[in-house]
């Protein structure tokens, strides 16, 4: 029996969360939850509707060293935000690739993060930008690195009594980009993607649809600036980081080869 609780304030929300230790579904934009319930993929039946809290948890602002995106900001809002456009074009590019404009008007950044799909489009760029998430509970806030947020397939560093309240992205002068290869050019699910951010001999890399959960490519990052690496070398190095799967949309082999090509092409570019 599906039940939906509708807290009107954060206080009410935490009262609910503290009362019972349950793995609630938080209805944010609903773009993952609604289709999954319909298809019977999502079996959890206890929902908490966050729409009453949306005003307080939506918007973008900055402090001295970070841009902070509140968790229920939609991707349509993100795309239009001046601060984000100025500082993180790779993230803006990714946000335009989430579904189509209809989905972007509803989908929130927290939903994308918590859904934790290997194909989630905002995550590779956020990972390479060293984003952090703020987890809020009645006990207060804790901040953790996004790279530490994912521990396994749909296994996240978040407790039942917490919600994501903010996404913190440190400003930097790194060059960053995001390349998506999808099933089509809009309303497409990513077959494989690569995000990167670099400066001098430092690089952060992350790939979509390449592993069971979103993560950085640490092994590849470490060896990225070695001299005279070949395509073959990257094939070996990348195997330490990723192991893409076959599925309805593509083959693991294709995903791997494309990722190898993208990484190698970037390598050649930066060697110049």
């Amino acid at each position: 029996m599906i039940s939906v609780l509708r807290p009107k304030t954060t206080k009410e929300l935490f009262e609910i969360l503290d009362k019972e230790d349950k793995n609630y579904l938080f209805l944010a934009g609903g773009t993952d939850i609604m289709p999954s319930i319909k298809k019977g993929i999502e079996k959890r039946e206890d929902l908490i509707d966050l729409s009453f809290l949306k005003k307080g948890f939506s918007g973008v602002y900055r402090d001295k060293t970070n841009i902070i995106v509140k968790s229920l900001t939609t991707f349509a809002k993100i795309q239009k935000d001046e601060l984000l456009n100025k500082h993180f074009p790779s993230f803006i590019k990714a946000s335009k690739l989430i579904g189509g404009y209809t989905i972007q008007g509803m989908a929130t950044i927290a939903g994308n993060i918590v859904n934790a799909s290997p194909a989630a489009d905002s995550l590779p760029s956020l990972l390479t930008l060293n984003a952090k998430v703020t987890l809020l509970s009645s006990n207060g806030e804790r901040i953790i690195e996004l790279k530490d947020f994912y521990k396994g397939y749909k296994n996240l560093e978040i407790k039942n009594n917490e919600i994501i309240s903010n996404i913190i992205i440190p400003t930097s002068d790194y060059q960053a980009d995001f390349i998506e290869v999808g099933t089509r050019k809009a309303m497409s699910i990513t077959k494989v993607s690569l995000a990167y951010a670099y400066k001098d001999k430092n690089i952060f890399l992350s790939a979509g649809s390449a592993f069971a959960y979103p993560k950085r490519l640490f092994a590849t990052e470490k060896r990225f600036f070695e001299k005279d690496l070949t395509k073959k070398d990257f094939e070996i190095i990348l195997k330490e980081d990723v192991s893409p799967l076959d599925d309805i949309r593509s083959s693991g082999n294709y995903r791997f080869n494309v990722l190898r090509n993208l990484v190698f092409s970037l390598y050649q570019e930066l060697q110049k």
Binding site: G30, M34, P35, D49, T74, A76, Y101, T102, I103, M106
Partner: peptide
């Protein structure tokens, strides 16, 4: 905001 009525509860 542009929204989809089929997935709005």
């Amino acid at each position: 905001e542009l929204s989809l009525a089929c997935i709005t509860p």
